[in-house]
Design a protein around this nucleic acid. Structure first.
Lengths: 372, 372
DNA sequence: CCATACGATTACATCGATGTAAATGGCGGT
DNA sequence: ACCGCCATTTACATCGATGTAATCGTATGG
């Protein structure tokens, strides 16, 4: 049943979603232990003069319930202020109706936006999303992978940062899992991501087309464990190669995290090089915003002196000064597909088919920071 | 028990938090229905040669369990890959160990940051946070108020926008509730917020001290239902009055939402007035960032032509161009206190004491957008 | 008027973990 | 040897909802 919704399509049609609240009137003389005196299905049954199972049938829109009974039960529910106890239902059904979404960091707007889409999609499909932050720490990602040491959720959508291939190899495959973003973990679980190599190639291509030749990559890294960095750096280098532009190793600069401060620090480092860059391909928007700010403080003009581009198309890039050229992933599509894949696996209730690898769309949005 | 943690202090000390995963080996010949063949407490008991209750005792760190037994049970748990079934525990205990945090919009960075703090705090205290977006819609806020039509959570922390006093009056008081932010709903539930009137007075005072006299309020509203707007507008007017500056009604401009686009639109509206403002007190940072952007596009300089200030101190205000003067609420303190109040109510397991009204700290951070 | 069918309803067992109270067993004291 | 004490362990009932299968009752066909 939908969390935050009502109990079943019929009842939700009948009552709407704003519950009328009346303090429950316990008519039974049962002891008041248990759930703080909340009425149980049995109380409703007694009040309505039917069996508990009939109440259950009404709740679950079982078809063979007479209109009279249905009405009586609903009145009882309404009067007593009854709500189903999820624990009981879940125990019986073996499903929680909840999935977990584990992302590294909600402060990173991309993940907040993605989370909204995932929550909207799961709600639409009658499930509930439990949002968890991993901080990009491996231990937390592992916990997510395994359902958090408790059978809390029916499945997990995980956007990993620190996870290693071996971690996925010996995971408990009974828990449905969908991975988001970049993983070098083929075949082990369903996976949804944009084509990062192509996206980075396009962004670099755009900068090259504007005549930039010394393009730095903030967040770039070919050897690190962060796959986003690797794939996007590869795309960058492919574009350089295709244009016959030499790669300068010193312009590819890894960062500890993908946040404003890291972008600002990286930009300053790069501008101290003997041969300064004339563009900065930042691997996410926060890095780009941080870089732009640092450049501004040091008296450089964007896009006058340098071009800057980002990734993710967070809302801030449309209002910053200058606005930021960025690669916009189809967040809605990613969320929708991820939820779809996960719920399908859950419904399949078994190993299901082989792992699916899906590519979501993206597009380059040129804005002021690279002359748009 | 902590979600995302381990089972109880002892076991978590014993095993650490990164679960070693082995595919469970079911030694019993029980039918494989139920939770997808996961081992139950009974299976562990059988494997370890003890009763189910003893396993439960080990799980819950009951003191009178011999070391031998404890070890045997733990080995069994480890071998079988057992995890407690929350549904069963919850049904028996009548608690879920989860609380809900309902905020209007995760895209609004303040709420994302607040959510992180709340999640960190609940995790520290052994609970789990279920994060829900209300979109500021009354029906969703009501749902949160009532525990989402299902006994999903032990309590709710709600940051309301659209809620009306009457909604709180007849709520089901069995569900512990803490309100965040501004509410004109005294006494009905615990409540944590900063002193908005004072904060706004300080911000306006700062602008007045800089010689600004025509100070617009973006998001301001004395009659609307949004309490944040009302209280901050009151503070603004108090400051004007104290300084003997006349209030211009046309400079107080309500907005439909507190996002970049609304700030941008409002700024444009204000600059079309016959007598233009010389400062804009924006009631959150997104409005301020949007206003700054719009002013920039139309050729106005901040802080040259106008000062702009915000509220909330989201991270973006430290990296925007210009950086934004803002009122920084003690988010950490708000989160900590809210969680504390809620968990106390939950532990009290009854009506508890009268509703508490707590004021969190805040401070004005002067940055470039008002000459800092 | 009886047999049949089927819609409506119900009794009962069950999901997994844990509180209660009672049983078990070892040990020291008399 | 008997008793009582206490640490340890266990049997059993229970939390609330629902699947199963059985029952009840009424309409229909022969």
């Amino acid at each position: 049943m939908p969390f935050g919704g009502c109990d079943g399509p019929l009842s939700s049609a009948r009552w709407g979603c704003a519950p009328r609240v009346r303090v429950a009137i316990r008519t039974t003389t049962d002891s008041e232990k248990g759930s703080m005196g909340r009425p149980r299905i049995k109380d409703v049954a007694q009040y309505a003069g039917v069996s508990a199972k009939t109440v259950s049938n009404v709740l679950n829109d079982y078809e063979h319930v007479s209109e009279r009974t249905r009405t009586a039960v609903r009145e009882a529910i309404d009067t007593l202020g009854y709500r189903v106890n999820i624990a009981g239902r879940q125990l019986r059904r073996g499903r929680t109706g909840m999935i977990a979404l584990a992302v590294p960091d909600l402060d990173v707007a991309y993940f907040a936006e993605l989370a909204r889409h995932v929550m909207a999609e799961t709600e639409r499909r009658g499930s509930t999303t439990l949002l968890v932050e991993t901080g990009g720490r491996r231990e937390k990602e592992l916990a997510a992978l395994h359902g958090f040491d408790a059978q809390f959720t029916d499945g997990v959508i995980l956007s990993p940062l620190a996870l290693e291939p071996a971690d996925l190899a010996d995971r408990d495959t009974r828990l449905p899992l969908v991975l988001l973003g970049e993983c070098n973990l083929p075949g082990s679980a369903d996976h949804v991501a944009i084509d990062n190599v192509t996206a980075a190639r396009e962004a670099t291509g755009h900068l090259l087309a504007r005549g930039r030749r010394r393009i730095a990559v903030i967040g770039g890294d070919l050897r690190g464990s962060r796959n986003t960095s690797r794939l996007r750096t590869v795309g960058h280098q492919e574009a350089l190669a295709a244009a016959g532009v030499a790669l300068r190793q010193e312009l590819v600069l890894p960062v500890p995290a993908f946040r404003w401060a890291d972008g600002a620090a990286a930009a300053r480092t790069l501008m101290r090089l003997p041969e300064r860059p004339d563009a900065m391909l930042c691997l996410n928007d926060h890095l780009a915003l941080g870089a732009v700010r640092a450049l501004h403080e040091d008296g450089w003009s964007v896009p006058g002196d340098l071009d800057v581009t980002g990734f993710d198309d967070i809302e801030a890039t449309r209002y910053s000064i200058p606005t930021i050229t960025t690669v916009a992933p189809d967040k809605r599509g990613i969320a929708r597909r991820a939820v779809e894949l996960l719920l399908d696996r859950i419904d399949a209730d078994g190993p299901g088919g082989p792992a699916v690898d899906e590519t979501a769309g993206h597009r380059l949005i040129v804005r002021e920071s690279s002359g748009g």
